[in-house]
């Protein structure tokens, strides 16, 4: 069985020794104790596990550790810079865009990727882009509002 011995996560090279067929989600959570990405479905249908791979949002539940090797992986734990939350994290707090919060990390990662592509997405684009992310608590309207607010903060020259 092929083994993976290193992953580049949140800017640091993490030494591991795992079966390449294991999911990236399991390796992040169980081997690296980065539990921000969550399991929700295991079939790329809920978005709870979204992380960035070379800047692109991917469902870590259907991404193998083998295919993640060599890529730059960013998890929700890696967004905070020098004690500064990412504007989208700030916006989630300000808007109260969560209830149980279990979907929040995946939503934030998908939203961060969207804002990098388009710093000023309208509501329709937010809805389209985040359609793969489920919130069973129904916090959708506030999540949309949080993304809009973060876009405003980013345009206003806030920390990026």
């Amino acid at each position: 069985m092929a083994r993976i011995t290193e992953l580049d996560v949140n800017g640091s090279r993490e030494k591991i020794d795992v079966d390449a067929e294991r999911t990236l989600l399991s390796v992040l959570r169980d081997d690296l104790d980065l539990t921000g990405a969550k399991y929700g479905c295991g079939e790329a249908r809920c978005g709870a596990c979204v992380v960035l791979m070379d800047g692109r949002p991917v469902p870590a539940c259907v991404t193998s550790a083998g295919s993640a090797a060599g890529a730059k992986i960013t998890t929700v734990e890696g967004l905070e810079q020098d004690g500064q939350l990412h504007p989208l994290q700030e916006a989630f707090l300000e808007v109260g865009a969560m209830q149980c919060g279990y979907c929040t990390p995946g939503m934030i990662m998908a939203g961060v990727a969207l804002l990098r592509d388009n710093p000023d997405p309208d509501e329709a684009e937010i809805v389209r882009t985040l359609e793969g992310n489920l919130c069973r608590c129904g916090a959708y309207p506030r999540i949309v509002a949080a993304v809009r607010r973060a876009a405003g903060m980013l345009r206003g020259g806030g920390a990026a």
Partner: peptide, 23 residues
């Protein structure tokens, strides 16, 4: 006045440990 969630920061940073995050 709306009160911000007491553990909101832990949620948006992935720091809150749900059962499945307990180790």
């Amino acid at each position: 006045a709306p009160v911000p969630r007491v553990n909101g920061r832990a949620i948006v940073t992935g720091g809150h440990r749900y059962t499945s995050d307990v180790r």
